[in-house]
């Protein structure tokens, strides 16, 4: 009679619920970083379960690059209404307008990197001392080494060489004023676990995750969206209508689209089981260098 009785999804769920309750117990003003992607949707769903019948005792924070798929915003607003949650939006456009960041130029320009400044300003402005994110350790090799309770200094920076030891299920959230934590309650989930859990719990997702016809174009081995039209195209890049779906959802400029016929969760799970490329393989932001993620995280990225 032990953990053996639980399926891997039940055990992962139990661990994540435990972590979210530790967040509520140990921090004064935590929040959930909500991107509209499946991982942050699962995270929010787990928080709903962890505190039911009470409401989630912290707001959702959306860092908005302004380059959204409209479906994401519709989903976000409906979810917030259904949960009775508070929503805080940090706008990258506002950071640009205020001159805090400078927009990248060129064909591969992205606001991904600029988000870090908006994120840190939003956390500081609302005095959030903890931001829960939906990052998973299987996504990327730098994330594989990050703690579940990840300490950030006054500048929001991560120090990978001097992380606090994290043993058993004992989490240490002690910090000095001005510092904060990033907490990753679904660290131990894989992409497949997330999809199986969505299937098991019948969690509703934005329509972008299911296949649909979309105007897109091909660049550097991947399909990118031409609708909404945020990415400047080279002359030789032709817009075509294709049957695609998103495997991850981020900002339009760094979300690769997968050619797919998957209309249902069952078909998506089958597709992922047979796929040979990681989901971040479609993320332009990670392809910039071998340690791109580690370098961004050190500066305060998600």
């Amino acid at each position: 009679m032990s953990l053996n009785q639980l399926t891997h999804l039940n055990e992962l769920e139990a661990e994540s619920v435990f972590i979210l309750r530790e967040v509520a117990a140990q921090f004064e003003k935590p929040c959930i970083l909500f991107s509209g992607g499946k991982d942050s949707i699962v995270l929010t769903y787990l928080a709903y379960k962890a505190f039911y019948p009470a409401k989630i005792p912290f707001p959702l924070v959306h860092i908005d690059t302004g380059h959204n798929f409209p479906e994401t915003l519709v989903y976000r607003d409906e979810l917030v209404k259904r949960l009775g949650a508070d929503l805080v939006v940090g706008s990258v456009q506002k950071s640009i307008d205020e001159g805090k960041v400078v927009e990248e130029k060129g064909f591969n320009a992205s606001r991904n990197k600029l988000q870090t400044v908006t994120l840190l300003d939003t956390l500081a402005g609302h005095k959030f001392d903890c931001a829960c994110g939906g990052a998973r350790r299987d996504e990327e090799k730098a994330r594989a080494k990050e703690r579940i309770f990840s300490h950030r200094d006054e500048f929001g920076q991560w120090n990978p060489k001097n992380q606090r030891p994290e043993l058993w299920n004992i989490f240490n959230a002690k910090k000095d004023p001005g510092e904060h934590f990033r907490v990753f309650p679904i660290s131990n989930w894989t992409e497949m676990d997330v999809w199986q859990y969505i299937y098991q719990e019948k969690i509703e997702l934005p329509s972008l995750y299911y296949t649909h016809m979309r105007k897109c174009f091909y660049r550097d081995g991947q399909w990118l969206a031409a609708d909404p039209d945020f990415i400047p195209r080279r002359p030789e890049e032709v817009v075509e209508e294709r049957e695609v779906r998103c495997r991850t959802i981020g900002d339009v400029t760094c979300t690769g689209l997968t050619l797919s016929h998957a209309h249902s969760l069952e078909e998506i799970i089958d597709e992922i089981a047979s796929t040979r490329v990681t989901e971040r393989g479609g993320r332009a932001d990670d392809k910039r260098s071998e340690t791109a993620m580690e370098d961004r995280k050190k500066q305060g990225y998600f």
Partner: peptide, 18 residues
């Protein structure tokens, strides 16, 4: 995965794999 590990060819920290 960490820069220092790749540079020095050693494992420094606990890594979780799935």
């Amino acid at each position: 995965g960490l820069r220092a590990e790749r540079e020095q060819g050693i494992t420094i920290d606990v890594a979780y794999r799935y």
